[in-house]
């Protein structure tokens, strides 16, 4: 399935019941050099829109929200020592967490590539 986007600049790519998410290339560029990512604990359950992570640049700290509801099944702990990955590959290696979705229908209301491109114009 293709990547979906939120208006708050998170992306999520879902395969089966699991999704992998992070922040968009647009967001990473706006933030500037990412210096730290605070990730949730594995096993935590989140509702769509809950604060999920915090991404920090030198002079700003921004909350990252859960794009969907579900349970955190994995976090990208490599980011702890290599936060620059978020700038280098925000929609690849720089992913934040993997979520087991509890309501796939939430994806329907989210933006696709084209809509998100329009959103950030």
């Amino acid at each position: 399935m293709s990547t979906r986007f939120t208006k708050d600049h998170e992306w999520i790519r879902v395969e089966g019941e699991e999704g992998v998410m992070g922040i968009t290339a647009y967001a990473a560029e706006q933030l500037g050099d990412v210096v730290f990512v605070e990730l949730p604990e594995v096993g935590k359950t989140v509702a769509q829109g809950d604060e999920l992570a915090v991404v920090e640049s030198v002079k700003a700290a921004s909350e990252v929200y859960a794009p969907v509801s579900g349970e955190i099944i994995e976090v990208n702990s490599a980011l702890e020592d290599a936060p620059a990955t978020v700038n280098e590959a925000p929609q690849g290696e720089g992913w934040f967490v993997k979520i087991k979705l509890s309501d796939k229908a939430q994806l329907d209301a989210m933006m696709d590539d084209a809509a998100y491109a329009e959103h950030t114009k």
């Binding site: 730290f36 920090e56 700003a60 700290a61």
Partner: peptide, 9 residues
């Protein structure tokens, strides 16, 4: 590490 501090956080 100023993101800990009041003027940012």
């Amino acid at each position: 590490l100023s993101t800990r501090e009041q003027h940012i956080r």
